[in-house]
Design a protein around this nucleic acid. Structure first.
Length: 229
DNA sequence: AGTAGGATAATCT
DNA sequence: GATTATCCTACTG
């Protein structure tokens, strides 16, 4: 695949076959390269979220059972898990960890470093101009900017031509550039018991990180509080 | 800067 | 039939 100049190593199966929290953290600063259209779009990742893993995670799509949607999460590390969110947007995960133990990292936001024109065209559905920092600020926006959709479900990002992940020459041995601080928080939009887990990772003070909307939705156990007339 | 409401459909109960 | 790993617009201060 065609790659921007300062990319060093493509992330392989070894990178993804590890604990989901480690992978989510170390993906920060790495670059997603999407050759899904006229020209490549490269996005430096600034925000990720971990789902699943060795500890039970009620917030994971694979928490209950294996279904057609989450099937790829049970397969090998390095595959793309793309799903439709709220009936409108696409969101992309990378499958992580051992086969049969479902886990994935959601790519929540990043900084477009190559292909601004292509990304902007994809993002501008209205007459309003989209600021550079907003091109891939949010999981749905990131997929739109990168041209990623359901057709990429199950692709192996360690080998395929369309989508790859790369470490930059300026990156530290693991994670972003030296000196860039990593912060954590609860996940965005995750309700229930899993809502408070510190599974969101982002670069501190980076303008391309999406606004954090913690959702602590206290559901009544017996349903009485939610009854409707 | 912050928030409320609506769009929209696959998925699961 | 309810829920949802979101985004955009249009308000308010």
């Amino acid at each position: 695949m065609t790659v921007p100049p300062d990319l060093e190593d493509r992330l392989g199966p070894d990178f993804f076959e590890r604990d989901v929290l480690v992978v989510a953290r170390e993906l920060l600063g790495c670059v997603l390269v999407a050759a899904t259209g006229p020209g490549p779009v490269a996005i430096r990742l600034t925000e990720t979220e971990a789902y699943g893993g060795s500890a039970p995670d009620p917030g994971s799509h694979a928490h209950r059972s294996r279904t057609p949607r989450n099937d790829v999460m049970f397969r090998q590390a390095g595959l793309a898990y793309v799903y439709r969110s709220y009936g409108i947007h696409w969101c992309m995960n990378l499958v992580v960890g051992p086969v049969g133990q479902p886990a994935a990292v959601l790519l929540r936001a990043g900084e477009v470093v190559v292909g601004h024109d292509t990304a902007r065209r994809r993002r501008e559905t209205t007459a309003r101009a989209v600021a550079d920092r907003d091109l891939a600020r949010g999981p749905g926006r990131l997929c739109t900017a990168a041209g990623i959709s359901g057709v990429h479900y199950g692709l192996d990002v360690t080998t395929c031509d369309a989508i790859g992940l790369w470490r930059r020459a300026c990156n530290g041995p693991a994670g972003p550039e030296r000196g860039v601080r990593i912060a954590t928080s609860s996940r965005t939009g995750v309700a229930g018991p899993g809502g408070s887990l510190p599974y969101r990772f982002f670069l501190a003070d980076d303008p391309t990180v999406s606004p954090h909307r913690p959702l602590v939705h206290a559901r009544s156990v017996d349903g009485a509080g939610l009854a409707r007339g």
